[in-house]
Nucleic acid binder design. Sequence first.
DNA 1: CGTGTTTGACCCGCGC
DNA 2: GCGCGGGTCAAACACG
Length: 406
Amino acid sequence: MEKKKEEDHQHHHLQEQQQSSKNTETKIEHQQEQEQEQKLQISQASSSSSHMANLVTSSDHHQLELAGNNMNLSSFFDTSSLPFSYSYFEDHSSNNPNSFLDLLRQDHNQFVSSSNSSSFSFDAFPLPNNNNNNPFFTDLPLPQAESSEVVNTAPTSPNSTSVSSSSNEAANDNNNSGKEVLEKNQEEENQREQKGTKPQLKAKKKNQKKTREARFAFLTKSDIDNLDDGYRWRKYGQKAVKNSPYPRSYYRCTTVGCGVKKRVERSSDDPSIVMTTYEGQHTHPFPMTPRGHIGMLTSPILDHGATTALSSSFSIPQPRYLQLTQQHQPYNMYNNNSLSMINRSSSDGTFVNPGSSSFPGFGYEMSQASTSTTSSIRDHGLLQDIIPSQIRSDTINTQTNEEDKK
DNA sequence: CGTGTTTGACCCGCGC
DNA sequence: GCGCGGGTCAAACACG
């Protein structure tokens, strides 16, 4: 054990060293790759014009991880496999804050509930059979899996980009490889999920193949690792990631009976990018814990905790955005879209709500906190109270130069 | 005291 | 079989 740890540490150090020199290189490489291979661009600091988000489907979160580990996000987001081109996003995303949402909406309900544009249901992830209309899935040979890994990127702002992925294979540029990966993941997932109690685990493994829970991963450009998505999370582990100087943190929803987990790790490639992978589906509306009264209402803001603290707070997604915005400052890329919750996207990048909105698990909140709710919230002050008017305006309405922000 | 984080230990699957 | 890497557990600790 100790040995192991030492190794890990050493590994870590080495990687860090490599990283420092590597980061610079990789950024350059990225740019090149982007141009040459049309790889997905994740907002790179150096390129102000890149706000495009590309949506990529990946076979499973492992790929994501690998990508991150390799420090080559661009490769991860290989656009070659993308169903659509950059332009797609550019047109919609950069100027139109809602574009991403719109896209999602088009996708019937898979991502967003039709009735409420703001809702995003987890159930949807598993993927649909009708991907045809979904821009994100289009043309992808998706085997339908129980869970899917979809990657979406939402260009939120010019410098920001977010990518999400669901565990289904989607991506697969290659059906075969994707499938293999998928299967592998399923097994792994099963193992993981069943680990709760050893005894239980074994039993489950042998007797039943647990269905893999839907996973949804996305990239967020943020200074904060743990994005507050409105739910309360308890950190239950942290591990060094191979080939990455940044550790991966494991969180679990603190709500009783809710087994949703999320993993958060920073891209070694671009430290400003945080990869968050949600797994499972919330079984509760929102964290109504003692503390929680729906966060926003009660605790407006700033939980700042910037650190982990954030995780513990819960609030309505929107507010969180706000929080995020402040915390993460310049931008988050992820715009998730939030889809409709906020109108915005920021152009500035400001904000984004990573988890809440886009994430499947948040369907509940989203749907319940309907758009109107959110908007009302926003309109009514939460935002205002919390966020500086300037920021707000940026986030909501306009697009500004990200550069300015930075 | 309740809640959440830290972190070493442990488990497990996979590849060699 | 062994080592590696990922994921989880749980005791200790921190904090309000």
